[in-house]
Design a protein around this nucleic acid. Structure first.
Lengths: 292, 292
DNA sequence: CGCGCAAATTAGTTTTACTATTTGTTAGGC
DNA sequence: GCCTAACAAATAGTAAAACTAATTTGCGCG
């Protein structure tokens, strides 16, 4: 007769989510990142899933993972399902009374670009509160509960994002230091500050300006652009400035351009919107404000 | 600046599932049933969800719950999302190597009807193993991991189910006892066994046969039809037989019909199939076997 | 060869989920 | 009206799941 085991259950939902993220991103580590857990947690979830169905979903290599045939065949269904769930969660949050608008942005953008624009935004949507979360990488708006994301995006960018400005770079430094620099060649005599996430800014600029690729662009590295900026203001060296991020400091005179050579990068500042909340008047107003 | 709370997270997936089930079934208790947990667990999930979004999703009444406007507005998105997830889980299970086919059936059907047909089914699909789970009510095949469900269904039934037979009822008893019964009126002289889930079988039969609705159909009640059947075989009384369930016992002579009056109920035995696995050859073969 | 990256592993901890039990409310039968 | 049956709320305690932290392994690469 074999009246079966109690009542068969679904695999744990969290394991399914871990699988979906890992499979979509082809990496346990990035999945862990997206889910805000440690890679070990993801590995365990997937291990238990595989144990439950009695078959491997990933082939493990030393430098990452690869989906098995089975894993690849079921991935689309899971992506679709979690997209739908993400949409549902979004509708839950945005239909709720407490209308908080959540913006994700690069730390440097939120501190040096967005902050000065916030007062006007708050004025434009007085009834909503705004929260800003600084993230190193653009979140997946289908999966993470943000309404808007502001990040740099290499061109050609996605068509569903709105461009808020181009990324233009040029060296900046404190006025006193600028007095000692008359030619790009002089850069070898001063420290060149740089941000660890944009470590090749200097070589890009040098190459584009033909101003001697022989310059040794040594100097302290900072994990946050705003720290590097602070140091530049203190006269500690020359920073490769990103127009959007140094404009405020230039306006108040704390930083100046020692040379008049700008490089326009094939990259823009873009604002991305989540599908569900895309059409609310508040979101529209924020984007209008920022696109000015 | 207000760089926001760490990184906003989704509400727990289990709470979302609890909400979806409760909202779809309009009842915490039935949701708890479907999820195989206690009603208290569902209530807690929903309470925490409501706390998180700062708004009620249900209006609580003494006799059940009702969705708020907010709850109702987001329900469709969640139903869709969990349907998609159910589909994905099904594809995960059915694509996996260990092809176990899971059948859900009424306890009485699995013991008294399905069991004698199982050998032929196993012969028809020698490479798949079969598990049978006895359930009191038909599971939601979009949500619970069964490939097939065999249950009684009131007519007119759903079009996507296959009819395996009609529900025909008539009294049955042990041969010795039958000898003492010549007329339906004699039923008042013997115990009338009945199953608690079909407690009004007797009145339906009596009404349909006009054989005196004055008969007092008293007698022991059983929570499992197979227990009642056993007792009937032992001569403990007359049981209202369901054709599909007593046929085997009649064939081997352990039960007989004291009267030749059958009532054909507007109800059938139906086999339901889950969407994803519907088209696999194994499932098709099983249905063919059973529909003979 | 060792370095670095990505994943596996394990033990221990925290968080979440769940049960069991009691309490409270109300509709409906008598 | 009062009782009973249903259903949900509340609470405290328990079980299970999820997660972390710290190592370990495996492999490609300079």
């Amino acid at each position: 007769m074999a009246v079966a085991p109690p009542r068969p259950k679904w695999p744990p939902l969290n394991s399914l989510r871990a699988f979906e993220a890992a499979a979509r991103l082809q990496s346990f580590t990035s999945a862990a990142d997206e889910l805000c857990v440690t890679p070990g947690a993801v590995a365990q979830h997937i291990k238990s899933l595989e144990a439950q169905i009695g078959e491997k979903l990933f082939v493990r290599h030393a430098k990452g993972v690869e989906l098995t045939r089975l894993g690849a065949s079921i991935l689309p269904a899971f992506v679709q399902a979690f997209d739908a769930l993400g949409l549902a969660v979004h509708s839950l949050r945005s239909n709720a009374a407490s209308t908080e608008i959540r913006i994700a942005a690069l730390p440097s953008l939120s501190q040096l670009w967005l902050s000065s624009r916030l007062p006007n935004i708050r004025k434009a949507i007085p009834d909503s509160s705004i929260s800003i979360t600084a993230l190193e990488t653009k979140p997946n708006l289908n999966r993470e509960p943000f309404d808007l994301a502001i990040f740099f995006e290499d061109l050609p960018g996605s068509t569903d994002a709105v461009e808020l400005g181009r990324d233009i770079i040029y060296p900046v430094c404190a006025p006193e230091l600028a007095a000692t620099l008359s030619d790009p060649q002089d850069l070898s005599t001063v420290p060149c500050l740089h941000d660890t996430t944009w470590s090749n800014d200097w070589s890009i600029w040098c190459e584009a300006t033909q101003s001697g690729d022989t310059i040794d662009h040594h100097g302290p590295a900072f994990s946050l652009y705003s720290l590097a900026l602070e140091e530049a203001k203190n006269g500690a060296g020359v920073l490769m400035g990103h127009d959007a991020l140094v404009r405020d400091s230039m306006a108040n005179g704390s930083l100046v351009k020692p040379f008049d050579i700008e490089v326009r990068l094939p990259r823009r500042i873009a604002i991305f919107q989540a599908q569900t909340t895309a059409d609310t008047p508040e979101i529209t107003k924020i984007i209008e404000q920022l696109a000015l």
